[in-house]
Design a protein around this nucleic acid. Sequence first.
DNA 1: CGGCTGACTCTGG
DNA 2: TCCAGAGCCAGCC
Length: 106
Amino acid sequence: MNDPLSEPSVYLRIQGIVRQIPAGRVSTYGQVAQLAGGCTARMVGYAMASLPEGTDVPWQRVINARGRISPHGMGYGSILQRQLLEEEGVRFSPDGVIDRNLFFWP
DNA sequence: CGGCTGACTCTGG
DNA sequence: TCCAGAGCCAGCC
């Protein structure tokens, strides 16, 4: 049942993976890409960029491999992302880095 | 069908 | 640690 190729498109497949991320946790683009299968970290980022504003996909829980938020949305999108994560209980280091052992998923 | 765009990751210096 | 370049691919016009 879990035939990834059964999904209509790569982007929708990626969105499905992101929805599986529980609140209070985060994941990386590369991780989501591997879970989706057949796609790369870039595809995940591009898929997130194409998400609508009222999407039900927790795009905020997806960050880069460094455990940090990548600048996007003219720089303000990343700020919003950080606020949303803090609302869910995710802690950031003074440098804006998330502890991989505490919040990274899976 | 061609060209442009984009929220990444890796390696070398 | 930071910076620059290369690799990579699905959407959209």
